[in-house]
Design a protein around this nucleic acid. Sequence first.
DNA 1: AATAAGAGCAACCGCTCTCTG
DNA 2: GCAGAGAGCGGTTGCTCTTAT
Length: 441
Amino acid sequence: MGRAPCCEKVGLKKGRWTAEEDEILMKYIQANGEGSWRSLPKNAGLLRCGKSCRLRWINYLRADLKRGNISPQEEDVIIKLHASLGNRWSLIASHLPGRTDNEIKNYWNSHLSRRINTFRRANSSSDKTPMITDVHVPKARSDNIPPKRKGGKTSRWAMNKNKSYSTQNQKETEKPKESSVSTVNHEDENEKEAVPVPSTPALENEILSTNVEDFMSLEADQEDHKISDAREKESSTDQGFRSSSCSEGREGMQLEEQHPLEHEGINGGEVLCFIDTLDVPDWLLDDGGGIWPLTDERESSILNNKNNNDDVVGGGTGEESEVGRLGTCPNKMAASEEMERVNLSCSNEKREMSSGDQWFSCSSISTTSVFDDNSWDWESALQLDNIVDESQDEYSWVDNKEKLVSWLWEDDHDLESDSQNLGDIDPEKHSAMIAWFLSST
DNA sequence: AATAAGAGCAACCGCTCTCTG
DNA sequence: GCAGAGAGCGGTTGCTCTTAT
């Protein structure tokens, strides 16, 4: 027996909200407060589903909502958080006061994801330098614009410039069946340019750094509870969060769809697919044998290691045997191995769902050739004083990973001194590191 | 001027999680 | 522990509108 529907579907109004409905809802909530969504429509005299009322209130009628376009700073936050959190829109929204998950989701789907695709294609030049521009303020805004627009609705930005349309239209035509009052409100707000000034990037980063670290710790704590469920889910269903770009990875990493760069006959080896976190960064697909087939056997071995909770980088017989079996450089191997484990322990549930195939594979990389010229591996990275607590007898990769993330996240760390250990890192590569690292968490 | 194409986004849907009795 | 209700979340749909042809 299935669950009872959240509301009686018969006789309920659907579609856009009218000004009258909005007013009724607002008045009711102002008088009675939020909650009891199920009974709210009846009590308020609305022919709407309770869920619909809730959504309307949360997304459009709440007083604390920020109106207007997503600012570049907000966009920056969205990009960064999406790189680390994936499609957890509500979580992302919690970092952006006044923004709703729905708004962010829509913004992502309509603006950013497309821009990223454009960006990726546009950067498929012969230049092997990993071009990454979106970690901070996306350059795609100014560059990499498709040559010619083929029609379509104008952006909000353009709409704002053309406010005469919307406001006038709203005022003059007050169509009862359409154009809810909230739309009018939006435009009014836009009219006032009432976009609150976002916090400074520095502040933002500070907050974000903390939040991400908190999040990761939390995730690590929850990992044990989630992992088995995730594995079950993964085995029971093949859908979920498997990216369209990665297929079943048991027989080795295969791309379900050929990467655009490959279509174009270009070695995409250095183009970062940083935003599509479920995508395989092309530069990981180097010929260095970075990605190897992940067998069930290996997967369970990793899981066992994880469960034993005593595996460390650079030590342990299990690791050695893995190295031997796979015949890979021990250092790289260990780092990659740990990356896999970290993916399990620090990733969110959805990532875990896909970890068995895609993420194991994606993270099972050779850690050299990340940046074409500079040899780079995680052990080197961990030599940084900022990252490694040398008092530790053994590596605790998860801990160090968190440090590494926070280090990467900080814009103001001393790259000069770091570079003595890590080699020269220009800001661009630094951004790339952030993106890559976060996309693998 | 008409129309097709496509962008933007509000709203819906179905699922999961949490709370409560 | 279980079941039902409520709440929340993420994916998807479909309408509205703009723009190119």
